[in-house]
Amino acid sequence: MADAHKLEILRGLVKFKSNTQKIWGVLVLLSIITAVEVAFGIYKPESLMSKFIGMKLLNWIFIILTIVKAYYITWDFMHMRDETKALRRMVVWTAVFLICYLIFILLQEGGYIESVYSSGFIKKDF
């Protein structure tokens, strides 16, 4: 696999001449994303404080940026981009499915318990 690196990121928007160059390019991208996150975290723009599907818009932005970072770490640093489709799906789909399931179950339950607390210990009186 030594010479078979795919050297494009951002769907071919940025092409690199060598693998080393691509690594530095990805570093720049990750640093920019982190800087944006930190800036948002410190200044917390008022316009992003509105709620969207149960969470602040700002928090959704943080989560999406995090997933973008995770994508580039996995795809370029861990060379997932160069692995076969079968190995990639084996690892990524399994993890993504199970993690989504776990998060859904736990957050749903946490939210339910919170509403039981805040609504006087009775959530639904059938």
Binding site: L102, I103, E109, G111, I113
Partner: peptide, 28 residues
């Protein structure tokens, strides 16, 4: 190593999801 990483990722998601659970529980 990849399969170990998948299982370890699930362990960490378990922790973070549990954190989310407690946080949603005491969101106020």
């Amino acid at each position: 190593m990849w399969f170990f990483i998948v299982s370890d990722a699930l362990t960490f998601s378990g922790f973070l999801a549990a954190y989310g659970f407690s946080r949603f529980k005491f969101i106020g």
